[in-house]
Nucleic acid binder design. Sequence first.
DNA 1: GGCTGGCACTCACTACACTGGAGTGCCAGC
DNA 2: GCTGGCACTCCAGTGTAGTGAGTGCCAGCC
Lengths: 366, 366
Amino acid sequence: MTSRTRPDPEVAGDPVEADDAPSASGTTIDERQAAVLRAVVERYVATAQPVGSGTVARAGRLGVSSATVRNDMTILEREGYLVQPHTSAGRVPTDLGYRLFVDHFAADGQVPAGTRRAVSEFFAGAHHALEDLLHETSHLLARLTDHAAVVVGPPAESAVVRSAQIVALQPRVLLVVAVLSNGSVEKQTLTLDADTDDATVAAASAILDAALRGAAVTGLPVPPAAARGAGDAAASDLARRGAEALAAHAGQHEDLVYVGGASRLAAEQSSFSAADRAERLLELIEEQVAFASLLHVVLDADVTVRIGSENEAEELQECSLVLAPYPLGDSLGGTVGVFGPTRMDYRRALAAVAVVASRLGKRLSG
Amino acid sequence: MTSRTRPDPEVAGDPVEADDAPSASGTTIDERQAAVLRAVVERYVATAQPVGSGTVARAGRLGVSSATVRNDMTILEREGYLVQPHTSAGRVPTDLGYRLFVDHFAADGQVPAGTRRAVSEFFAGAHHALEDLLHETSHLLARLTDHAAVVVGPPAESAVVRSAQIVALQPRVLLVVAVLSNGSVEKQTLTLDADTDDATVAAASAILDAALRGAAVTGLPVPPAAARGAGDAAASDLARRGAEALAAHAGQHEDLVYVGGASRLAAEQSSFSAADRAERLLELIEEQVAFASLLHVVLDADVTVRIGSENEAEELQECSLVLAPYPLGDSLGGTVGVFGPTRMDYRRALAAVAVVASRLGKRLSG
DNA sequence: GGCTGGCACTCACTACACTGGAGTGCCAGC
DNA sequence: GCTGGCACTCCAGTGTAGTGAGTGCCAGCC
């Protein structure tokens, strides 16, 4: 349930290792300082206001005075976990601060009963096509976390053609359709120069089906050469064109991304520094392909959290992603995740993502 | 090119009829007052600042002093075309003011050369599946107008099944696929309690295809009863289940809506009074079905403009829609349109929507 | 040595008064 | 019927305190 492949630092007794601290001092922070950080993060996530030492001390969990908290905050700031927006304001967590929080305090894996129930109800319901299920899952996750959510479909690469056919829509317009093993359907329109008769289309469809059935969608089916004896050159030619059209399209076909709750980004606009950040993010989402590539990296980990500057993409510098892969049958499926401002309730997001990924995987595999 | 079915009021010489004016006086506004309104609208659209009498007079088109403009503005305000945000500010157009502007000054139908060229280039390019074309068209329209754009697909009602089949994805998971005459594909997964063999699936597929081919997608195909002699009861049963699944789904299947450039709503947030307006709109867009129903009403008109309160939906009260239907073959296709804040460049939007609708119709019909 | 209370200091935020300017309505005169 | 002039309104911007939350530092206490 932890994120990243980092040794889990000890919190009790021994000093917490500030492994990523930018300071060259190699200083560590102790247990109470970590608790202060925790209090600051929780408070800041709740209120969006810089948190002062008095607030933390008054909360009373630590049993120390505000002066002591102040001293700890000074250290936490020196070590890069907190920053002050300006002198005489409270402190705000840095990306590094969130990272420590996530690694130490967000990983207890408690899933709220309400979340668990909502997920169960959702997956108990009927869903038709794969696309619908994934799409609705993204909305479920958005509802649970109150952030935008993504569901990346199973990778297209592993799909195999289960059926292929050519259908006449209009006299000169044909549709080439391939049903893939992952439940998706590839289609391509084919416009002809002259009318074709039904028999030729049917023959071509049969040729195409025979040639493509069972073929992997990548390393695509070789177009059947002018085969089939000299029987029907027109049909054979048509089948070849159909195969080519499919191959050209399927080859560059990226995994589909379903985004739910993108509207929440508008509400989160105030959490971003640049005024057009939310707009840029929405644009990024609209370019599905580019967006999918940003989510792909997770595959091995259980749940991965990427906080602010840990993201490479410029647009995501002020965002956090909580991602988890889900299995599909015995192989790997896709990814589900949540993204919002770094000021995010990581515990809730982690719990929701984990449980949804797990249930979605079971649903798709069972 | 005009909107609504309202007699085009005379502007030259005769007084312009203030047909929708809320005042009981039945007063009319004259040509110069209309020109003042025009100047206010154009200026306000450009600057988003209330427009004062001095600004209009200084622009010089009218050749009258600011005092005269002031008098006209007073009348325009009394008649409901303008409002003052507060005393001693300039004037801002009302929905009624925009309506007059659209009816009188936005209808000259001049399409900028750049727009025309961009549209030509777009439709000259190759597009594969119908869905892709419509999706990309919505982005084209968004780019041209700098607002969010919608493209509603051809109505599903008129579609006819051109092919139907059942494909095995996994031993117990089947996919029922129907290719429709409008180029779309309906699919449904079917989960079985026991494994089936390929022969049964193939037989069921043949039965289904025979039964559904040519049937209208509405008033849906009656599931073939336990027919086909006693030959293969399992196949016949399977075909019936497939047909039922398709019918259940296709019956409630709404026309698809493609939205492009929704991210622009975030930038337009400042044009809305309520802070969460943009968020509400994005939510509305996410619920495709609900959104589509708001766009459907246009069918007869050439280009329709709905301004602010002319929209019935509560969420659209501060939005304007510019919509135009496009033909598909000989029947009616779908709708293309643009939507943004009432403070919108209507001339540009009208021109872009008209030309895109026309070219899209030709492309789909030719 | 580490926690604590106390204290001086910083600085954003708010309230308030003041001013400049854009805009208005009205009116007498051409 | 248009125009210039004039008094008035009121937003927006600026300068000035006052307030309070928060900080850093330090001496003292356990």
